[in-house]
Design a protein around this nucleic acid. Structure first.
Lengths: 247, 247
DNA sequence: GAGTGGTCTAGACCACCAG
DNA sequence: TGGTGGTCTAGACCACTCC
């Protein structure tokens, strides 16, 4: 048993929800190693008592970390710390966000940019009539000075004001978010294939080199398909990492 | 507005939790198209009232579907149906489970099976000392009569009784589950590379064909690393599909 | 201002697990 | 048999959105 209650204090004057304050603090304790994997927490009622919270609020905090994969609960047994490692669960982010967060100096070269008629594949994905106007973007993404990926994106025309310069400086998702588009869902398909001659040249790979591909359709919080992308990454430099949590 | 309350009834004598009954029924209504994307649900209190539930219970049902990506809630606005499509969110399953569910007639050929000393990479992943005994398994997976993937797995020795015959008939995760091992977390890395000569031959691909690779470490509900796998799939036949939900 | 979801409380009973 | 988490109730106040 561990006196977790003594390591956590909540601030009732803070605008941050109580359950979230507790969850954050617990996460800190786990990631800093003060609560090692295997540690059993006190029961919910005792914890709630020590922190001056009601049981449902304490439960909400614990549930949040269970969903994140940091804690495990078993009826009749208790709550245990599962993992210490900092783990990223699957997130709805863009390559730019990922690279920026890990300080990999992303740089973007906009290869082409402009309105066009949606090809069949794009029209279907975005739920538009064939030939509807879409904004087509083709970019070459660099990280640490090396070309990393060829990215092709399609957005419904008129969805947002966007300039080629914006894209050179920010990630597409970043631009969309600041335009008030809230991304909610994305369907992704990850596969692999050989590089075409043009791709190999752009990416500095040999002909026929293996590329990792990702096709994504993203939906906003109104359920509209707002972006379709078809990307190809150098398999020698890039891979997708994800952590799955069983329900 | 939609009279959802009239389409749902709960059975208080059922052992199924009330919130889950409601969530399941709502999911049915959405997937069957009776609630089309964009539909606004009545507010929580009205729904709870119509079903004879308390508001927290009704909220729990709605939250379950929000987490699944079927509903979206906005404060001050309401709850809307986002998607109708049957979507699989990221799950902790094995290739065998996936193929079996989609009726693709999985077949397994066990190429090698036996105890060995853990190579460095495996020992690190399973948190064992280098050279510790592990069960090493190499399998060739077929679907619809075609070779699909070469799978290499390592399990701590003595974790479970396992025969080569079990593996020919069932998926590894299925066998582990029925042995009482509850998988909770998995770290995965998805990448791509060229096939080695041996892989190309086993899989019926040309030399240097692109393969999709997946490296996975799985943990049980006590936080122990229980399985490490390194798999290679024919990119021409296989891809990973996943749906992400923003938090 | 009216209506919505977000948070929180203080209880209650039950199902499951371990000793 | 005692302790744990799982579920459920009937309220309350607040923050946000839209009109």
């Amino acid at each position: 048993m561990n006196p977790v209650g003594q390591l956590i204090r909540v601030d009732r004057s803070s605008p941050v929800p109580l359950y979230f304050q507790v969850a954050q603090r617990l996460e800190e304790l786990i990631e800093s190693g003060q609560l090692v994997p295997g540690t059993r927490l006190e029961n919910e009622i005792a914890l709630a008592d020590q922190l001056g919270l009601s049981r449902p609020t304490m439960r909400q905090a614990i549930q949040y970390l269970v969903d994140k994969g940091l804690l495990v609960r078993k009826r009749g047994v208790g709550t245990q710390v599962v993992h210490a490692k900092v783990r990223r669960t699957v997130e709805l982010t863009s390559l730019y966000d990922d690279l920026h967060r890990t300080h990999q100096q992303p740089r973007t070269e906009v290869l082409s940019f402009g309105e066009t008629e949606a090809p069949d594949e794009v029209a279907v994905a975005l739920a538009l009539p064939t030939g509807a106007p879409v904004l087509a973007i083709e970019r070459l993404r660099y990280a640490q000075g090396e070309p990393l990926a060829v990215m092709r994106n399609y957005l419904p025309a008129g969805l947002l004001q966007l300039s080629s310069e914006d894209l050179a400086k920010h990630g597409l998702y970043q631009v969309m978010r600041s335009a008030g588009i809230n991304l909610r869902l994305a369907d992704q398909t990850i596969g692999a294939r050989k590089a075409t001659a043009a791709e190999a040249k752009a990416l500095g790979e040999a002909r026929g080199a293996p590329l990792l591909t990702m096709i994504r359709t993203a939906y906003d919080d109104a359920g509209r398909a707002v972006e379709y992308g078809h990307h190809a990454y150098r398999a020698s430099l890039y891979s997708f990492e994800l952590t799955l949590v069983a329900r």
